[in-house]
């Protein structure tokens, strides 16, 4: 792995009113690394993930994506202030994100969903974007659904289309927010297969997931969160077989029973 981390989070804090949901997160993610975040619901995993591309505004600490500070900038007086919207958007475009609820654009076909970012945001030629999109859709097994509307797809197909939409931006990292949690059990496998292939291709991936088998198999590191802090981080075999923290073994006992 290269020397400079893709993502560097330091002392990250987030409040919702009086609720302190992230309490000092420190984390680095290297290029090509697959990090899976686990932990009980309400532990702050999703909030942390959404802070990484500034869908959630954090109120203390720093998130660095490569050499860009996410969401903030230093003004002439040297003070840290909110970044311009256009620059936030540009940084965001370099990270792909996949959501629990798919969030495909329902008024567009699968192909139109996938080329929307390249054509509108990156201003690439439509024909180029279409041929690139078709390659991607073929890769996620949706070559025959190019002209279908999202409402005609199964949950697994929708999520694979959403992954293709994110990949079309040629992101340097991919964020997955519980990508299989709203799928019927028999459709989980097809989405995990796509993610497995992505990981094998060397994509940097940060995944919030309850799929412990997948985490054990694909993750380079597993990170356990609880109450807005990182409980422990380690290699999957260490976390799953010999957790050092009582909270981790307690959580794993409950989800794996």
């Amino acid at each position: 792995m290269s020397a400079a981390p893709v993502l560097r989070v330091s002392n990250l804090h987030k409040h919702y009113g009086r609720l302190h949901v992230l309490r000092g997160i420190d984390l680095t993610v290297d290029r090509g690394e697959v990090l899976v975040m686990i932990g009980p619901s309400g532990s702050g995993k999703t909030t942390l993930l959404r802070c990484l591309n500034f869908l959630e505004v954090y109120d203390e600490g720093e998130v660095w994506f490569g050499d860009e500070l996410v969401g903030y900038q230093r003004n002439r007086a040297g003070r840290i202030v909110r970044d311009r919207e256009s620059h936030v958007a540009r940084v965001r475009a370099r990270m792909g994100m996949v959501f629990q609820g798919f969030n495909l654009f329902p008024h567009m076909t699968v192909l139109e969903n996938v080329i929307e970012g390249p054509v509108i945001v990156q201003r690439r030629k439509r024909e180029e974007a279409i041929s690139a999109a078709k390659v991607l859709l073929d890769r996620v097994g949706l070559a025959d659904k190019v002209d279908a509307y999202p409402s005609k797809l199964s949950g697994g197909q929708r999520q694979r289309a959403a992954i293709a939409r994110a990949l079309a931006m040629q992101p340097e990292a991919m964020l997955f927010d519980e990508p299989t949690s709203s799928l019927d059990p028999e459709l989980v496998g097809e989405v995990l297969d796509v993610m497995r292939n992505l990981a094998a291709d060397g994509m940097t991936m940060i995944i919030v997931s309850h799929e412990m088998g997948f985490a054990r198999e694909v993750a380079d590191r597993v990170m356990m969160m609880d109450h807005g802090v990182i409980v422990e981080v380690g290699r999957p075999d260490a976390i799953f077989n010999a957790p050092t923290e009582a909270r981790t073994s307690e959580f794993l006992r409950r989800v794996l029973h």
């Binding site: 919207e85 958007a89 540009r90 990270m95 959501f99 509108i120 945001v121 939409r165």
Partner: peptide
């Protein structure tokens, strides 16, 4: 319009004007 639509549009790098014009208003 579901908030997820805004999230998805922002995640592919859209600015407010683009996401309104392309994603939110048509729906």
């Amino acid at each position: 319009i579901d908030r997820g639509q805004t999230d998805a549009a922002k995640s592919i790098g859209m600015r407010y004007g683009q996401l309104m014009r392309r994603i939110i208003l048509p729906q």
